Amino acid sequence: MQPTDDLFARLKRSTFRSRFHLGPKERQYCLDKGPETIDSHAADFIAKRLAPAEPKNDGKQTPMRGHPVFIAQHATATCCRGCLAKWHAIPAGVALNAQQQAYVVAVIHRWLVAEMNPPR
């Protein structure tokens, strides 16, 4: 499972998904912490908030702000199990395995890299 160009093209066409961007505070946080730490945060958030078969408060477990990963989750439709099912074909109601969790982190990472390095 690898994030695909097709996925990111579909996300860009979504009015809702394409409105998410990092603000100056989140960009600086990414610069200060570095990609390894941000990926570690993403892996932790995914394991705790998204990986269970029935996450607590599913559909509302990911804040809209407060951490670059949260913003990336909304931008990439990795914010809840419903979005994972709709956008990524990862069924709800079954715990995410290690490969699926790594895929979600890779999707988030790719979006964050693109946000931190906009085309000139």
Results as ranks from 00 to 15, higher is better:
2 Q>T: 12
4 T>K: 07
5 D>E: 12
5 D>V: 02
5 D>H: 02
7 L>Q: 14
7 L>H: 15
8 F>D: 02
8 F>T: 03
8 F>M: 06
9 A>M: 13
10 R>I: 02
10 R>D: 02
11 L>W: 06
11 L>M: 12
12 K>P: 12
13 R>G: 06
13 R>K: 15
14 S>C: 07
15 T>P: 06
16 F>Y: 12
17 R>W: 12
17 R>N: 11
18 S>N: 09
19 R>N: 15
19 R>E: 11
19 R>A: 10
19 R>D: 09
19 R>M: 12
21 H>M: 06
22 L>K: 08
22 L>V: 00
23 G>F: 11
26 E>V: 05
26 E>S: 10
27 R>A: 13
28 Q>A: 13
28 Q>R: 11
29 Y>L: 02
30 C>W: 03
30 C>H: 08
30 C>D: 02
31 L>M: 06
33 K>N: 13
35 P>D: 07
35 P>V: 14
37 T>V: 15
38 I>H: 02
38 I>Y: 00
40 S>L: 09
41 H>D: 14
42 A>L: 04
42 A>G: 03
43 A>H: 01
44 D>K: 07
45 F>L: 07
46 I>E: 14
47 A>D: 14
47 A>I: 09
48 K>P: 06
49 R>P: 08
49 R>Y: 13
49 R>A: 11
50 L>T: 09
50 L>I: 08
51 A>W: 01
52 P>E: 12
54 E>F: 10
55 P>K: 05
57 N>M: 06
58 D>W: 04
58 D>Q: 04
58 D>R: 01
59 G>Q: 03
59 G>N: 01
59 G>P: 08
61 Q>H: 12
62 T>N: 09
62 T>I: 08
63 P>A: 15
65 R>V: 12
65 R>T: 15
66 G>A: 03
67 H>L: 03
68 P>A: 00
68 P>D: 00
69 V>I: 05
69 V>M: 01
70 F>K: 00
71 I>G: 05
71 I>F: 03
72 A>E: 03
75 A>Y: 06
75 A>W: 04
76 T>V: 01
77 A>H: 02
78 T>K: 11
80 C>E: 01
80 C>F: 08
80 C>M: 10
80 C>Y: 11
81 R>D: 01
82 G>Y: 15
83 C>M: 07
83 C>R: 04
83 C>V: 08
84 L>W: 15
84 L>A: 08
84 L>K: 08
86 K>E: 15
87 W>Q: 05
88 H>K: 04
88 H>T: 01
90 I>C: 01
91 P>Q: 09
91 P>N: 13
94 V>D: 05
96 L>G: 08
96 L>Q: 03
96 L>E: 08
98 A>G: 05
99 Q>P: 05
99 Q>T: 15
99 Q>D: 15
100 Q>D: 14
100 Q>R: 06
100 Q>W: 12
101 Q>T: 13
102 A>L: 04
105 V>W: 12
106 A>G: 05
106 A>M: 01
108 I>Q: 00
110 R>T: 00
111 W>S: 02
111 W>H: 09
111 W>L: 04
111 W>I: 08
112 L>V: 00
113 V>E: 05
115 E>F: 07
116 M>T: 03
116 M>D: 09
116 M>A: 01
117 N>T: 11
119 P>Y: 06
119 P>S: 11
119 P>A: 14
